[in-house]
């Protein structure tokens, strides 16, 4: 029963933050600020959704059902690691590409990278 509550809370947090990330993408004014919203919130939200699945699998294993549920938890954990690493690196790649393709952060109070390039 405790496991069920934890699962619900994790799923709720995950969906909430994913929704905030999507809202941020729609609301923010330029690429860089959108990337802020995208990377942080969707990674965090998906980590919590994965945690819900891991807890579900772990609870089933505790109840004595081994085999597929153990595999479910472990594989979800691997997916979580892959996602956390690739999302941050991908965001970095997009930001760099946006800057190289001539997009200036707007609005911005300072841009040191542009100064170095010039």
């Amino acid at each position: 029963m405790i496991a069920d509550t934890i699962i619900m809370v994790c799923l709720g947090i995950g969906l909430l933050f994913n929704a905030l990330g999507v809202l941020g993408i729609l609301r923010f004014p330029d690429v860089y600020t959108r990337l802020h919203a995208e990377t942080k919130t969707t990674t965090f939200g998906t980590i919590f959704i994965s945690l819900a699945v891991i807890v579900y699998g772990a609870a089933r294993v505790m109840e004595g059902e081994t085999g597929t549920y153990l595999t479910l938890s472990v594989h979800t954990f691997v997916a979580l690691l892959a996602l956390a690493f690739t999302n941050a690196t991908g965001a970095h790649a997009i930001a760099r590409a946006a800057h190289r393709s001539g997009q200036v952060p707007k609005p911005a109070v300072v841009d040191r990278l542009q100064e170095v390039r010039e």
Binding site: F17, L20, G21, L23, G24, R27, F28, P29, D30, Y32, T33, H36, A37, K40, T41, F44, P105, P107, A108, V109, V110, D111, R112, L113, Q114
Partner: peptide
């Protein structure tokens, strides 16, 4: 730090208070 980051971004998504820039 990541949890703090998300609450921070959530706050900025809702209020729209930003002052962005690129620093070294």
């Amino acid at each position: 730090e990541m949890a703090r980051a998300n609450i921070d971004v959530a706050y900025r998504v809702i209020t729209g208070k930003i002052r962005p820039g690129i620093v070294k």
